[in-house]
Every structure is written in C-alpha cells, then in structure tokens.
C-alpha cells in the first residue's frame, strides 16, 4: 500500500494529460449509471417495503410457480428466436460474404435498425391487424426475429467475409466437395461469429418486454413484462430479485459462450 501511495504522489505533482485521462469521463459515467444502479438493485433485493433486511423476496420469487413459468417461457422464446435467427441469418450472411457487392447489401439488412424499434414494432402490429392476423405467440416470435435478425447477420457476415480464401482453396485442392468444404472448413472458422450472434440475440430477447406487450396486446407475459409490473406495483424487492436473476442468466450465457469460443480456435474475427 505504501508503495502505491509513493508511486502515485510524484505522479500527482506533475499531472499530465495522458491518453488515460480521456477515459475518465466514461469511467465516471459507468460509475454513476451502471455501477450505482446495480448496487441499488442489489440493496433493494434484500429490503422489504419497510426497509428492513429480509430474505423474503427470494422466497416469494422462487416459490411462486407462475414467476418460474414466466421465466421458463422467456428462455424458451429467446431460444427459439435465436435458433430461427441463426437459421435464417447464416445462409444470408454466407451468400452476402461471397458476393462482391455484399458489403452494400448488408447495409440493407442493417437499415431497419436505424428506425426506432418501437416504431418498427408498432408498424408490424398495424400490418398484422390489417392482415387480420390474431396477435399471440406467433406474432411475438415474428417480431423478435424481425427485430434481432440484423444482430445475427452482422457478426456472421464480418466473420465469414474475413475467412481467408486460401483455406477454402486448400480444402478444395485436397478433394473436398462444396458441402464438405462448408462443413469442415467454413463452419468451424465461423464459430466465433455464430457465438457473437447468439449472444447478441439471445440475451436481449429474454429480457425484452415492449415487443411481447405490443405484438400480443399484453397476452404473452414474459420475464421483462413481469419485472416491469413488479416495479409498477411498487414491489421493488421482488423486482430487484428478478433483475438479478436476469443478470445471472446474462452472465452465465456469456460465460458459456466464451468457453465455447475459447475451445474453438479463434481463426475468424468476431465483431464484438
């Protein structure tokens, strides 16, 4: 400790504008708007309505069947959305990466992202209503896929287009046909992109609430909706627990994804 103080003191005397100084505003921002709220959530999770320390909130959440069902449903919706996004997004990204004009075409996929997602979702709802489609789980999944597809395509496209052509040529020289080239060369090389894509899609989808509320008229009740309702009704304790559960989910899926990513040789470049 004394060493540290000693090391800092002379530095303070001749304060210089180093590169690091420029990061201070952001660090300050992080502390105020990321760290502080997280601490507040953590504190709230252990307080009851009269501000006494309690573990009751945990009990309420984990013994209530409906909240676990809602959580399960959310994870299920997130899973299906992610898989559909991957299934649609991968071929698109693959063909775009092979085309010379792919970069421009990717722009078209990203273009809807520039429109506010609430407006997009409301427009989707209007279209469904005009087509006389009953709002429900189907429309919610559609809305999710529609909203999050660009997040899948973008990292995949980046990874796929940065694969060195010579790997593919080498595989072909060694007698692999096109499907074998894809399965044995391109797919393993794009794993990092797939992982970024999955993380980018899965995590937001399990926490979303606006899409499910708008595209099902509130009939599909997901984890995000549940948290929102808890805070609306002033049940801060349980709401905080649920936010923490969500956070744990995010961290765990991130951790798992990183593990998978590390095991696979990071040949391709991932975007995020």
């Amino acid at each position: 400790m004394t060493n540290a103080v000693a090391a800092v003191r002379p530095a303070r005397k001749k304060f210089k504008i180093t590169k690091r100084v420029f990061s201070y505003p952001y660090v300050l921002f992080m502390l105020l708007f990321v760290v502080l709220p997280l601490v507040m959530i953590l504190v709230n999770a252990f307080l009851d309505s009269d501000n006494n320390l309690t573990l009751e909130n945990f009990k309420i959440f984990f013994t209530e069947k409906s909240s676990l069902i809602v959580l399960g449903n959310s994870v299920f919706v997130g899973l299906v959305t992610t898989l559909i996004c991957l299934l649609i997004g991968y071929p698109v990204a693959y063909f775009l990466s092979k085309m010379s004009s792919g970069k421009v075409l990717v722009l078209f996929f990203v273009l809807p992202m520039w429109v506010n997602f609430l407006i997009r979702t409301l427009a989707t709802k209007a279209i469904f209503l005009a087509m006389d489609v009953t709002l429900g789980m189907g429309t919610v999944v559609f809305g999710m896929v529609y909203n999050y597809l660009p997040f899948m395509i973008l990292p995949l496209h980046t990874t796929l287009s940065s694969i060195d052509r010579s790997y593919i040529e080498a595989a072909q020289d060694l007698g692999a046909d096109s499907s074998t080239v894809f399965l044995k060369t391109i797919l393993p090389l794009s794993v990092s992109g797939i992982i970024s894509g999955i993380t980018m899609v899965f995590i937001p989808t399990i926490s979303t609430f606006a899409i499910s509320q708008l595209l099902s008229n509130g009939k599909i009740f997901l984890f995000g909706d549940s948290i929102q309702m808890k805070f609306d009704q002033g049940l801060y304790g349980v709401g905080s627990i649920m936010s923490i559960v969500m956070l744990v989910f995010v961290l765990v899926s991130n951790f798992l994804m990183n593990r998978v990513g590390r095991n696979n040789n990071n040949m391709g470049r991932s975007l995020w």
Partner: peptide, 14 residues
C-alpha cells in the same frame, strides 16, 4: 393477477 396474465397454456407455437 400475474398468474392470470401468465396463463397456463402451453406455448405450442414455440
């Protein structure tokens, strides 16, 4: 209210 809103239907679409 949350239980009622969450419903008990199996998400067949999913």
């Amino acid at each position: 209210w949350e239980r009622a809103k969450a419903g008990t239907d199996t998400p067949w679409v999913l």
